[in-house]
Design a protein around this nucleic acid. Sequence first.
DNA 1: TAACAGTCAATACC
DNA 2: GGTATTGACTGTTA
Length: 622
Amino acid sequence: MMMMKMKMFASRDIRDLHHLEEEVQRLQEVQERSANQIALLQEVQERSANQIALLQEVQERSANHIALLQQQLANKTQDIERLQAELQSQQDYEEIKTELRTRAPTHTDDDVLPAPSDSADHDPVIQSELRVHHFCGKEEPASDIPVENMRSSSSSSSSSSSSVVFIKEECEDEEEEEEELDTSSVARRVRETLQKHRVGQRVFAHCVLGLSQGTVSDILARPKPWRSLTRRGREPFLRMKSFLADEDSVQTLTVVQQRLRGIVPWARSPQMSSDQLIRNILDQNRSELMDVDSRSQRGSEDVIRNILHQAKHEMHVTSEAPEEVHHGTLSPSVQSPADFVQSIIRKVKCEMDEDTHPSASPAPLSTITHSFPTDAQPRTQVCVGSCEDEILESLDLDTVSITQRVKEALVVNNIGQRVFGEEVLGLTQSSVSELLSRPKPWTKLSLKGKENFIRMHRWLRDPHSVQRLTDTDQRARLKRDSQRPSDGFCLSDGSGAFEAIKRPRVVLSAHEKDSLRAAYQREPYPSQHTIERLAAQLALQTSTVSNWFYNYRSRIRRDGLTEPVQTRTVRSPASSSPVSSGLLSIKQEACDPEMEEDTHQRTRVSVAVQSVTKAEDLNELV
DNA sequence: TAACAGTCAATACC
DNA sequence: GGTATTGACTGTTA
């Protein structure tokens, strides 16, 4: 009995002991957690202190920028006043006009250029320059047919190509397309002609083919065989053929080139492009509006009239160049003259409002982001002047952090990349996808590339941005649902005029890609001969091969620059790719952009990624 | 003027 | 249906 009682006590003691041990363990855990929390709090406190210090620094920088801006604006105003005085003193306008006309003896300005506006007497310099810009800029004119022998009816140039000035009657002879052209010969002859007459590819590209210089360079350097060209691809060669057949066309192009090189040399520096001229006009508008503000609306009517006047000039340019006129751009979607003029005034005023009230937004970003509209035309870039360039250069955003936060916000709020892209960045879903998954370091971005991150940054800072986007998304969904045709297909305008002829997308096979990759390893910058040989071997078009090399190099570089994830895949050193100055503490070989999924061919290496979060990162401040 | 950066559209993928 | 990829394109840069 005694023994049994002792055993009972013993077992109770053991249980108590276990309980005590568990209690102690729990207490230790609690203690540990508390210690961690204290450490965390200290860290947060420390970080907050740093942020406050940085905020002060940024505020200081802001103040400096504002002072700089004010100084530069004052300087500009003085310059403009001086220039206006000089312009008024110009007495040789008629002489200059005469001289301009005599530059093209067989084709008068009135032939070459669109009808002058009702304000032709405004500014001879701007007039002349705008005319040249108009003539040679990228455009889709319905009636911009400059030279007599270039004339085609406005109705005949309703196709995608603009200029196409040297084709007398486009597609008037359908049978011509049946005739096989020696594209190499045509390209060679065009190259020789351009060289002989010292006409640049840019002028030729815009005025004759309605294409960009880069595209024309490619066409001339690597003409595809006639038989492998699509109808669309044959068009430039037909135009080139007509161009070669018409001596007047060559002469006219020479005149155009000369005009671009040397027209009214006293009006601008040799480096100044027509685009810059338009930019200057907008800068001038801005200064004038600043005058309006600062002088209590004194003379406001004159200023506004002047702006309207200049806007009309721009409209003259852009209405026939609906794509984009750089810098002084206006959205192609702006259709009516009234809208056009209003948009200029609105945007310039908007800029001025923000410039003149810098204190409304303390962060330096506020002084530049006003250039990026919040409406549905985000690609429109107005007046990115030298001041803003300077500010942009001084910024240093953490692109990885921005994209991560944007991605989180989109996921949490169930917002799609498509909506975000269209509403916030003015980009397509695919571009957003690329941007978010592979953000380049800030320092490696061009000015244009930085814009996207500034927009995202601003979007993140805006407390109402998510709600707005959610609303927009819902409205878009409702609209889509209500407009969705029952049969899933409809013509855009009933006439089928806008029905695009879809070109089948080239999809390279695994074998073709392997061959191209192997070729890249041997020769990252293949010669023309190599490209042709590869194209022949793989039965591909030369442009496909060269495009593949361009894209491959580009994406190799991109993947060398961007590494947002903690783990990445790399290939053997033998297939190394160019790497850039590093944000990565351990810089690995850039992975093959087209081998991303092919884990069997690579080793997976964990890479410690150095935190790219810089202390001065503005993101930390918001 | 060749190469590049940025982008789009088609399409593959999940 | 949303996202990622990629061939092709345009405008810019060196």
